[in-house]
Design a protein around this nucleic acid. Structure first.
Lengths: 204, 204
DNA sequence: GCGTTAGTGGACTATTTAGTCAACAATAAA
DNA sequence: TTTATTGTTGACTAAATAGTCCACTAACGC
């Protein structure tokens, strides 16, 4: 029934890239349409506004991103190994982005959330929701580490909030300074926040 | 000689507030002029562009902010007391902003830096410079703490970078979630990153 | 093929925005 | 008081932008 189209997907992909490589406020609907190869009439056929598109777009991007985190945070791995892989993953991802776009881009959720939080209630809430979900990876890991006695963290949720803020803080610094090397401090910092011995200390 | 004016200052104040309570991209030159009570002709008399104004404005805001940090980080205080006061200060400031503007606003440097880093090279650099300066407060404190033997931190600059990223990360979370309570985790986290005993642990 | 539904194109309007300009107004030195 | 300098004003243009509208096209069931 009816005509088929991938315009919706193309628009979501376009806006995600534009926000990430630039900013929400500076990307216009015309720009989004042009990059997606979609006419404005079609844009308004699918979405009411830029904000509505952005909301669906980050949800969709999150769904695509999730499997990667599933691999990084596989419960089959020892908790601290998950942390290690997470830090590696973030670093490598930003290096790739820098190669591809000529700039370290940091975390798109953080970028978008920071920018719109006072102005776009719906978007802000969406960002918060996704952040809550992604923080769960850390929380589970911390709970496992505590259960194994590798660290002491009776309140895994609280520790996860702290560590999440720290990792996002580093990502933000990496974006602002356009320097992925900043992220090399991530694992050391997380282990400190966990009260865990460092990899080197364990080896020694 | 010539006519006197405070239009420049009014414009800088207006843009700072607009960026902080909203965002850089969404504030227009007309809006800035209106809030400052200054006509556009005067705007262009003093500044070439919004970016040029923003650059001068954050420099000026930083000069105004610095004395507050000087008090918080007074070398006359024990290092960990400075950290304590810093965390209190950040928390109280955000509470005040929430009361005044109806929203937790986080750190203006971070907000602006994140938004423009890929698009406005001059502004990005300015933000980086000011961040470097403000990080020095932490660095000095850490160096002092190390010298006093309260913590072990042979590389004070590196620790300062880590802790700065963490505190900015929490501020960003506070803005995105519109919740200053997030900041209550700051001191605990910083002490963990420093490898210092907690206040409670010391008391016990 | 026919009708129904889903999507497209592109021309159109109205508004907002950036940026310009020249006449005017205030200050202070001569 | 004259004059040079500094800042102000508001009207102006050109461009960018959001949003609308409707005739048209593609897919599919019948």
């Amino acid at each position: 029934m009816g005509r088929v189209s991938d315009a919706k997907e193309k628009l979501m992909k376009a806006v995600t890239e534009l926000i990430w490589t630039g900013s929400y406020g500076s990307t216009t609907i015309d720009q989004i349409c042009e990059r997606a190869g979609v006419k404005k009439g079609s844009f308004y056929y699918f979405f009411d506004s830029k904000a509505a598109l952005a909301e669906e777009a980050i949800e969709s991007a999150w769904e695509e991103f999730r499997p990667k985190l599933d691999r990084v945070f596989s419960p089959s791995l020892p908790p601290l190994e998950r942390i290690h892989r997470f830090c590696e993953f973030e670093y490598e991802e930003q290096l790739g982005l820098q190669r591809e776009f000529g700039h370290v881009l940091g975390c798109p959720l953080c970028t978008l959330g920071t920018e719109v939080s006072t102005q776009e209630a719906g978007l802000r809430q969406k960002v918060e929701d996704i952040m809550d979900q992604s923080r769960k990876y850390l929380e589970t890991t911390i709970r496992d580490a505590h259960a194994e006695g590798v660290i002491r963290a009776p309140d895994a949720a609280a520790k996860a909030r702290t560590i999440y803020a720290f990792s996002e803080g580093l990502m933000t610094q990496a974006r602002i300074r356009n320097d992925a090397e900043v992220l090399r401090e991530m694992e050391r910092g997380i282990l400190d926040l966990l009260g865990a011995k460092s990899v080197e200390a364990v080896a020694a």
